[in-house]
Design a protein around this nucleic acid. Structure first.
Length: 229
DNA sequence: GCATTAACAGCCG
DNA sequence: CGGCTGTTAATGC
């Protein structure tokens, strides 16, 4: 299907951008305290309102951040691919989880305890710098979310949505191919499966990605992020 | 007009 | 067979 290499938790941690500048002692503690958990496809990784005890990374899998309104409507904010980390906002503020996280397929996750996270905050300037940049990047994403939700046509929304998903900042794994159904792309981009299919064909003709069944391959992330301008 | 839903046939694993 | 895909027709905002 795709590259069948199985990455270990340790390997994933060592490749993490934020791990690059840690001292060997700091890295040893991280490796000792971060635990791997398995989330089957369709299961909740965490739910809105849960206490936040961990910073969570994706070793191998695909997650969806979403929220259900009382009326039963689901709003998806974004997805998370291999190598991505999330939840730092709620760990920093000591607040309950603000959204649901669902595994869209079988996923292996890395759970860093809040104590480890806070210890890194107190002891590593590069770690702080990484968080600052990631938070800043997210801010940009959410500002443009509000903007394009109101202004852009669906093809462009899907392009931006995929551009965000493959934003090298959140997805440092050089992953280009993603096993995902068009129905799930619809969920991620807040549109119907049929309309997502249509948008994908437009983007494929524009040379920005390639569509196969059950998967897409990103060819031009920057093109997706600027599509429609 | 544009998007969503429903329905269906074809295809892949 | 079961899930995914590409299309079309009906319906709604």
């Amino acid at each position: 299907m795709e590259q069948g290499n199985v990455i270990s938790l340790t390997e994933m941690l060592r490749r993490a951008v934020w791990a690059g500048s840690l001292t060997p002692e700091q890295m040893a503690r991280v490796e000792a305290e971060v635990a791997e958990r398995f989330a089957p496809a369709g299961s909740y990784v965490c739910r809105k309102g849960d206490p936040v005890d961990h910073w969570i990374g994706v070793v191998d899998g695909l997650l969806k951040m979403s929220s259900d309104s009382p009326e039963g409507k689901t709003v998806t904010f974004t997805g998370m691919l291999n190598g991505g980390w999330f939840g730092e906002g709620s760990v920093l503020k000591t607040e309950p989880r603000k959204y649901d996280v669902v595994a869209l397929r079988d996923s292996r996750l890395a759970f860093m305890p809040r104590t480890t996270f806070e210890w890194l905050l107190d002891n590593s300037i590069p770690f702080n710098r990484f968080l600052l940049l990631q938070l800043n990047e997210r801010l940009g994403v959410f500002i443009s979310l509000v903007e394009y939700d109101r202004m852009l046509d669906t093809d462009t929304r899907v392009a931006r949505c995929l551009g965000t998903l493959f934003n090298p900042y959140f997805n440092p794994g050089r992953q280009r191919t993603l096993q995902i159904s068009q129905e799930e792309i619809g969920y991620l981009c807040s549109t119907s499966r049929q309309r997502a299919n249509q948008a994908l064909q437009v983007l494929e003709k524009a040379g920005l990605l390639r569509v196969d069944y059950g998967s897409i391959t990103i060819l031009d992330v920057d093109g997706l992020r600027t599509f429609g301008n």
